[in-house]
């Protein structure tokens, strides 16, 4: 194993480790698509919080291709896929306690969602 030396510290801090990867992957969704977040309950690692599961959202931005934490946390490879900024109305997430004009944005991977109908 390499040892992080004092000389390398400024380089590490300045460079970091981007989770964005430069590989071609077909995006499953386009900006403007309506999506439903899957209702999954893995006992393993996921970055899909419970409060968005089963909810209806709208794709607002395609961030590009990123590695998938659900796989990386378990040594299952990087599993690169598109990551999107997805918008949910506050009332979709929380019902009547929320105001209709408020919203929430969260970043979700291709695997987390299915294409949905929206009236």
């Amino acid at each position: 194993m390499p040892v992080l030396t004092e000389e390398f510290v400024p380089i590490l801090v300045k460079t970091g480790a981007s989770a964005r990867v430069d590989v071609a992957r077909t995006a499953r969704f386009r900006v403007g698509d309506w999506v439903r977040v899957k209702n999954i309950n893995p006992t393993t690692h996921t970055r899909m919080p419970r409060y968005v599961r089963g909810k209806l959202g709208c794709i607002k931005r395609d961030h590009g291709v990123f590695i998938t934490p659900d796989a990386v946390a378990h040594g299952l490879g990087e599993h690169p896929q598109h990551l999107y900024s997805v918008s949910f109305s506050a009332t979709e997430l929380w019902g009547d306690v929320a105001l209709a004009q408020d919203s929430l944005r969260i970043d979700l991977w291709d695997d987390y969602m299915e294409l949905a109908e929206h009236e």
């Binding site: 194993m1 390499p2 040892v3 992080l4 590490l12 690692h45 934490p69 990386v72 946390a73 378990h74």
Partner: peptide, 20 residues
């Protein structure tokens, strides 16, 4: 944390899962 992470002993996702 940085030393162990920078030394390649674990990645950030393993770390978050360990905390979970």
């Amino acid at each position: 944390f940085f030393a162990a992470f920078g030394g390649g002993h674990f990645n950030i996702d393993e770390f978050r899962h360990a905390v979970e």
